[in-house]
């Protein structure tokens, strides 16, 4: 009785196929590249981010980054400085309805250890706002316009200075997002 009862192997998950469909280049270790791709996948399909792009080189110094960083546009503003919030409320605007700003995302894994030096290096390599990229969801790492306008000349400075969205991946594929500011920035009162 040699009936094969083993069920057929399940189809690979959406994430697995996504990771497989993107060839890794040699700029960073495969771990960092896969990590960035997984965070990008989470941002794109779970949080509806657009204009996602993976940066391997700093837009400021053009040097290779510590690890790949992601830039993207959230569907709504993820951070409003408390002073801006007060001003907008005074002017009768709804601070939650403001135009979203492009953000830097730093992919990390929960098992990692970080130090102040590494945060300092990451902040040293990025500007306040990620450079504009042509073509949405272009993950093919073409760095031709990586050194584009850093925030642009006409853009007003962000209150609170540089910030990075720290994306931390857990072993169960949960991703948590924390905003890290460079310097002392008073907390939001939401």
């Amino acid at each position: 009785m040699a009936i094969d009862t083993t069920p057929p192997a399940p189809q690979p998950s959406a994430l697995t196929s996504y990771l497989k469909s993107h060839a890794l280049d040699g700029s960073h270790s495969p771990h960092y590249q896969t990590l960035a791709l997984q965070i990008l996948h989470n941002l794109q399909y779970q949080h509806d981010w657009t204009s996602l792009h993976i940066h391997t080189h700093s837009p400021i110094t053009q040097k290779l980054l510590l690890r790949p960083l992601i830039s993207g546009l959230p569907p709504h503003r993820i951070y409003v400085h408390p002073d801006d919030q007060v001003e907008e409320l005074k002017r009768g605007l709804d601070p939650t309805k403001g135009e979203p700003e492009r953000e830097w995302v730093l992919p990390t894994h929960l098992a990692e250890k970080w130090s102040l030096r590494r945060f300092g290096e990451v902040f040293g390599a990025v500007g306040e706002e990620p450079p504009e990229e042509a073509g949405e969801e272009d993950v093919s790492r073409d760095e031709s316009e990586g050194g584009g306008a850093e925030g642009g000349p006409g853009r007003k400075k962000r209150r609170g200075g540089k910030r990075i969205l720290l994306a931390t991946l857990g072993d169960d594929s949960t991703v948590v997002y924390y905003i890290v500011h460079d310097g002392i920035v008073k907390p939001r009162q939401n």
Binding site: H47, Y79, L165, H181, D182, G183, N190
Partner: peptide, 11 residues
């Protein structure tokens, strides 16, 4: 001294 402030991203 260099400082960093961390807040929950709300997502």
């Amino acid at each position: 001294v260099r400082t960093f402030c961390i807040e929950w991203g709300g997502m």
